[in-house]
Write a protein that binds this DNA or RNA. Structure first.
Lengths: 116, 116
DNA sequence: AACACTTGCTACTAAATCAGTAGCAAAGTA
DNA sequence: TACTTTGCTACTGATTTAGTAGCAAGTGTT
């Protein structure tokens, strides 16, 4: 598995645009989930694993390596934590929480039409 | 492949929380990319495929079905377009573009340390 | 009508990624 | 010393993605 370094080709994109590298990174299983769960505060490996609903350690470790190398998370005494950049990133995506609730309510309403 | 409907279990999460369904959805290859590229305006199937750097038609179709069923994109005369909810979603994530540029610049600077 | 194009999409195979489980080395604790 | 906890690696099987070929339906042209 290669880490999507901005400026280089990434999975599915040859442009090297930073946004494509980011979308590649965030488009990996649990990448957003790890960031999301770390926003609650630092966590040890096993605690982070619990927050992520028992994600397998191999996958968690892979995600950690990627996010660490890309300076989104970092290691501190208490375990892993979001870096300043990671915090900024989370700030951007945090409104997704309330958006997703509206969305869920809407889909609920629209359900009868989903059959088509 | 099952579509991550909020309120039900999704890949990696049994909680049924809307945010987890959303993170699952967005954590699939090209889901964010499709939304990103549709934000430029409606596109036909083949044009969308081009905007997504020749994503394979089978995968594009899969993503389209998911996003359509979840009311994030919809069909219009010109092809596919973001729904109002999709536009709202894009509004939230659009700052990722500038964030990713800062991020890229930062990683560039930090590169000598990446070797460790 | 016959032909050539375009469009939306399905089918299929191979490669990559993810899930799930077992377990080990190192560090801490009793 | 023996027992736990922690961080992590290894391995296997299942799922997802990439890449390519191509077809049916619609459109335009001659």
């Amino acid at each position: 598995m290669s880490i999507p370094i901005p400026g280089q080709q990434v999975r599915g994109s040859k442009s090297g645009k930073p946004i494509m590298a980011l979308l590649d990174l965030l488009g990996r299983t649990w990448a957003l989930g790890v960031i999301w769960n770390l926003s609650q505060g630092p966590a040890t490996f096993r605690e982070l694993q619990q927050r992520c609903e028992q994600i397998s350690p191999s996958l968690l470790n892979t995600r950690i390596k990627e996010l660490k190398q890309l300076s989104i998370i970092e290691v501190v005494d208490e375990g892993y934590t979001l870096s300043q950049q990671g915090v900024d990133l989370f700030t951007i995506i945090s409104p997704l929480s309330s958006w997703s609730k509206d969305w869920a309510a809407n889909i609920e309403t629209a359900k009868p039409q989903l059959e088509n």
